[in-house]
Design a protein around this nucleic acid. Sequence first.
DNA 1: GGGGACAAAATTGCATACAATTGAGGCGGG
DNA 2: CCCGCCTCAATTGTATGCAATTTTGTCCCC
Lengths: 223, 223
Amino acid sequence: MQTGMRTDTSPTLADKLATAIADGILNGTLPPGERLDEVGLAEQHGVSRTPVREALRQLAMSGLIDMRPRKGAIVSKATPEEIESLFVAMAEMEATCARLAAMSMTPIERRRLQARHESMVALAAAGETEAYSDANVAFHSAIYAGAHNAPLAEYAMSLRRRVGPFRRAQFRMDGRLLRSNQEHDAVVRAILTGDAAGAHAAMIHHVSLVEDAFEAFAAINAA
Amino acid sequence: MQTGMRTDTSPTLADKLATAIADGILNGTLPPGERLDEVGLAEQHGVSRTPVREALRQLAMSGLIDMRPRKGAIVSKATPEEIESLFVAMAEMEATCARLAAMSMTPIERRRLQARHESMVALAAAGETEAYSDANVAFHSAIYAGAHNAPLAEYAMSLRRRVGPFRRAQFRMDGRLLRSNQEHDAVVRAILTGDAAGAHAAMIHHVSLVEDAFEAFAAINAA
DNA sequence: GGGGACAAAATTGCATACAATTGAGGCGGG
DNA sequence: CCCGCCTCAATTGTATGCAATTTTGTCCCC
């Protein structure tokens, strides 16, 4: 799903293309720096250039791709500094959502968050990386939703997507799963007790460690 | 300027149209709910529908307009709850930027912020609404920039634009200028002393009052 | 062998043309 | 008088065609 995307009653070709291309970027088929040729994409999807151009423009606004007039589009390829900024921004957004969630989640939402978290304990212990990763996204999304603020939640999700291409395989690093789960525990406890400041701090801490993991990963790959 | 807009080397027609339409929305020429007819806009600007459509898609992603497949585009017309969410989101973003600015502004940036603030004291005292309003935007922009985080700064600015259509004439309310200036003083003091938590709190307080002003304004207009 | 100018190919930007869906208005039946 | 259906105009979605700029490849000269 795409941030701020048009409400989809019978999605248009351009919309479908936008999600298709975004998927390609997120799952690594289209790596950062890859050139996005209009006719190529058009032929590849069996459509004309017109909807392709509209899809590209939409993706450009989301930050997933870069367009330069008369130069074409490429998958966004950020410098280490820009990637760092993205991670910091994501940490701040997640922390803000966590703080708001601590203040405004309904009792039902709190119970569900706790249940979700507890179910992840088992996954972490069993080392089920893939299932944990999926559950992790759902966990964070639940916190976005708990903030009860659509613009913030959407932007947080958009940032999560945007850093996606740069954080592949993060969970494969030693002990990430168990550690992530412990940090979730701190976040959940703070939210459940309505400790806004604590939720903020715990979430910043959690997401910052993800960033550290990325940096370690990047360092390994650079070597 | 448009958030996440393509880097402009010889802007394309679609880009120029996007800013033109955005200007129309922001200055009230195109009020919320106004229908954005493609052929109308095309004739009005002397271009074909193609660049108009691309501009609209761009604006849709920014949240300034709403598009529904085969139904056309309208200037975003939010419910009171959605407007409330926008104001809350803006307050949170501004506060986050203020906190980061308190932590990471350079000495030069701090001095400039202080100078800018002091120059606004005179404007507030003299009741120069228009000049103060311009300076106010620059003041907040300086804090965004001081956060040293492009994604957060851009999103904060984008939210500021997005609430624009709903906060017209806010400064005309009694005593807003002086009060705004006093609140700025608290924000600036916190930032200059590196008081991150204080900067956050002061900014939330400041922007929340703007929201209250809006609500009062909306209440008057509804009556 | 290296570098620069020119030409051709490729690619983007814009316009026009066509198709398809929506919404409105009219018409007839109840 | 009201309701449903049908038809048609209006509007959006998509394709194609053309113009302009960028890029690439080649040739010539140094």
